[in-house]
Design a protein around this nucleic acid. Structure first.
Lengths: 123, 123
DNA sequence: TACGAATATTAGTCAAGCCTGTTTCAAGCA
DNA sequence: TGCTTGAAACAGGCTTGACTAATATTCGTA
């Protein structure tokens, strides 16, 4: 393997893993799934996650700094939505791979509402 | 929202985010992509990542404990391969979403070999 | 102008992640 | 049996992540 290839490989892996990392926190994943359905305000996210406002805001700060979401300011409300196509692609892939009907109320096809992930996995 | 729904939501998000977390380290992602192509020995992974043997072994320990990979023992070699269909599904989704030809030498369709992620993103 | 609501920011704490160096363990072989 | 090799496990130190509490900022409105 040429050194350049190694460098390229590492750069690709680093880039992708950053996106995955942004999604790899349960609260952020919930927020991202909700955003995949459409714009959402901060206080809806606070209600959805059950976290303190400051914690939600910090998670949103991470997502903003990773360029994964974008904000629209409307008076003193902020409306967040997904920006990164990779992130939404991965969310859709998860939905198809797995009946996660209701990961965030997301419509993922028919789905089996009562299933726990742990049991659904062993299909 | 009923409390049960909230609990279910959280459980699904936690389950999925664990898988994503396993993939969210650049070295582990590289290894997983390589495993997606077929069985691989530990020392090939050491060469691929450039990490110390003990570091690779610790990453593999994480992947094992998350039930994402499985091992076949052959004399004093260990052959690793992917086990979790969600993880391989996400890897394939990443490949389709993004021309990451050569994330780990993975064949992801034609691809554009020279592209850097950062530039490719803005297509 | 003063106030309240919605959100961001900062500081501090504690847990988790990742790496290095070292040791241990199991298998094959002289 | 004793040596070598491939890999896991353990101990340590440093960095990063996630939360709480407190404070700041911005906008609309009385």
């Amino acid at each position: 393997m040429k050194p350049t290839d190694r460098t390229q490989l590492k750069a690709n892996a680093a880039f992708m893993s950053q996106r995955l990392k942004a999604m790899s926190n349960p609260e952020r994943l919930l927020m991202l799934c909700r955003m995949d359905e459409g714009e959402v305000s901060v206080n809806e996210l606070v209600a959805l996650t059950g976290l303190k406002q400051s914690a939600v805001s910090q998670h949103l700060g991470i997502l903003r700094s990773e360029d994964v979401v974008e904000v629209r300011v409307d008076a003193n409300l902020r409306w967040y939505r997904l920006k990164d196509p990779i992130v939404s692609g991965v969310i859709h892939a998860l939905c198809e791979l797995y009946d996660i009907h209701g990961l965030a109320g997301v419509s993922c096809g028919p789905g089996r509402q009562g299933d726990q992930p742990a049991t659904a996995r062993s299909k």
